[in-house]
Design a protein around this nucleic acid. Structure first.
Length: 278
DNA sequence: AACTGTCCCTGCAAGC
DNA sequence: TGCTTGCAGGGACAGT
């Protein structure tokens, strides 16, 4: 599932291969993918404009346009953004196609249609994309000092897992990386946030930065049952580094003593080692 | 404030 | 073989 590292990998592809290009025409298939506005607004907002760059906040991709507007793309569960030759056959579940001058196409593909594509005026971001305004700090895109994490953690008695998943607190962490981060920090996912001592906060801070940085370097995680690939269709490698996610019942490779358990926390499947996480 | 459950949607796996 | 059922998950939202 695309989380911060996967979205960042796509962003880098867009920044290097799509920034500077001008959209010649736009096709929208399923209206659900542009539900935030409308088919007409997306087509009107993208046609004839140049994409000037590629930014990211949490799991949100933001592409500034030379019209002054921006494109927001969210991949949610199963979204893909692919840059392909316009001659390539259209894959199933392709919902938006932007054709560049020259014939290449940027395609948005999403079997589960949770993802979205929106063109919006940045001055009206609060009306169109209110959750974007409320997003917490992004640990990779911005400075994320230990003191910021300490404030977030100490301010609540919630369990660590749902806290890490709360995009309004910290932006970009999803179910896979939350489990991997908490394992690396040797903290149980159901541990109350405000029960952490100073050293535990330090471990959590380091683990957030370390896991996310390494996952970005690996091009994200591509799991057998998910379709995450980068802009050019390549999968990532970080799944081979996963120590708990999807390893229920296996021996813990960190301590060599525990067996990975799976529980539900914050309504999400959660994996951890009961021996080395406390 | 914190928690649970529901919804959206599709592909896949398990059970019959 | 082919059907039905359940599950996964990001995030908004309603209800307790």
């Amino acid at each position: 599932m695309p989380e911060l590292p996967e979205v960042e990998t796509v962003r880098r592809g867009l920044a290097s291969r799509v920034a500077g290009r001008t959209v010649d025409s736009v096709w929208v298939g399923r209206e659900r993918v542009v539900r935030r506005t409308s088919r007409e607004e997306l087509i009107a907002g993208l046609t004839g404009v140049k994409i000037e760059g590629a930014d990211r906040r949490g799991k949100y991709l933001l592409l500034p346009l030379d019209s002054g507007e921006q494109v927001m793309i969210h991949l949610r569960m199963s979204g893909q953004v692919l840059l392909v030759d316009g001659e390539e056959p259209i894959a199933d579940h392709t919902h938006v196609v932007a054709t560049f001058t020259g014939g290449d196409q940027l395609r948005f593909i999403d079997p589960r249609t949770f993802g979205e594509v929106v063109v919006f005026d940045p001055e009206r971001v609060g009306e169109v994309l209110p959750e974007l305004v409320r997003l917490g700090p992004d640990p990779i895109a911005e400075d994320f000092p230990r003191a910021v994490l300490r404030e977030i953690v100490m301010g609540t008695s919630r369990a660590l897992k749902p806290l890490l998943l709360d995009q309004h607190r910290i932006a970009g962490i999803g179910n896979i990386y939350a489990d991997e981060i908490l394992h690396a920090a040797r903290l149980r996912p159901d541990r109350a946030a405000d029960s952490l001592d100073s050293r535990a906060v330090t471990r959590l801070h380091r683990s957030i930065l370390d896991i996310l940085t390494r996952a970005v370097e690996a091009g994200g995680s591509t799991l057998p049952d998910t379709q995450y690939v980068d802009l050019l269709g390549e999968g990532g490698w970080f799944q081979f580094e996963h120590r708990v996610y999807g390893r229920t019942g296996e021996r813990c490779t960190t301590c060599g003593r525990g067996w990975i358990r799976r529980i539900t926390s914050g309504g999400r499947s959660t994996h951890f080692c009961p021996v080395c996480q406390h």
